[in-house]
């Protein structure tokens, strides 16, 4: 198990190979379909993004509401492939990591190589378990999207596997 901390540097990215189990700590930002669409529209219009993208990690998640006394509700990954058409643009803007479940397409894999970035797989359908690794959560953009709003999460030793590395490797059987 490799312990890594965000923001991700080229050195960290270079040390990660497909299949590596990691424990991620630091800040990550949540975004799903609707938030991705808005972020990419801002990039196209050359406008400022509502989150710092350089070196950042985006977690594809729409959590359940936080019950009393907890920072967040259940918070596991959603299907990554729905973000395939948006991710290359964010990687070009400096995004270094994504956390989701399932496969990425060839265009994303090429972008991971080109921009030196990685994609992590977290355990799908285990939102109660994964919420235990989230220390704090705060909505920082697109509050109108409800669960799909962008949240700033502080995570500690969040378990994931390197699903696609920066050299074209993948943990999935091809």
């Amino acid at each position: 198990m490799k312990k890594i901390t965000t923001p991700l540097t080229d050195e960290i990215i270079g040390s990660l190979g497909a299949g590596d189990e990691v424990a991620i700590s630091g800040i990550v930002y949540t975004a799903r379909d609707a938030a991705h669409k808005r972020l990419c529209q801002l990039i196209e219009q050359k406008k400022e993004l509502p989150i710092p993208i350089e070196g950042s990690v985006i977690y594809f998640v729409g959590p359940t509401p936080a019950p009393p006394g907890k920072p967040i509700g259940s918070a596991g990954p959603t299907t990554s492939s729905r973000m395939d058409s948006f991710s290359p643009m964010l990687l070009a803007a400096g995004l270094k990591g994504m956390i989701g479940k399932g496969y990425r397409n060839d265009t994303v894999r090429e972008a991971l190589k080109k921009y030196k970035a990685v994609h992590f797989a977290a355990l799908g359908g285990a939102g109660a378990l994964l919420s235990q690794y989230i220390i704090s959560a705060e909505v920082v953009a697109y509050e109108d999207l409800g669960t799909e709003a962008i949240r700033k999460l502080e995570i500690k030793d969040f378990p994931a596997t390197v699903a696609y590395d920066s050299t074209g490797g993948t943990v999935f059987k091809e």
Binding site: T64, G73, T147
Partner: peptide, 19 residues
Amino acid sequence: QLIENAKIAKEQKLPICQD
């Protein structure tokens, strides 16, 4: 981990999955 997840969900009254 999935069995553990179901246990946490029941004990802490957290949804099994966020979806």
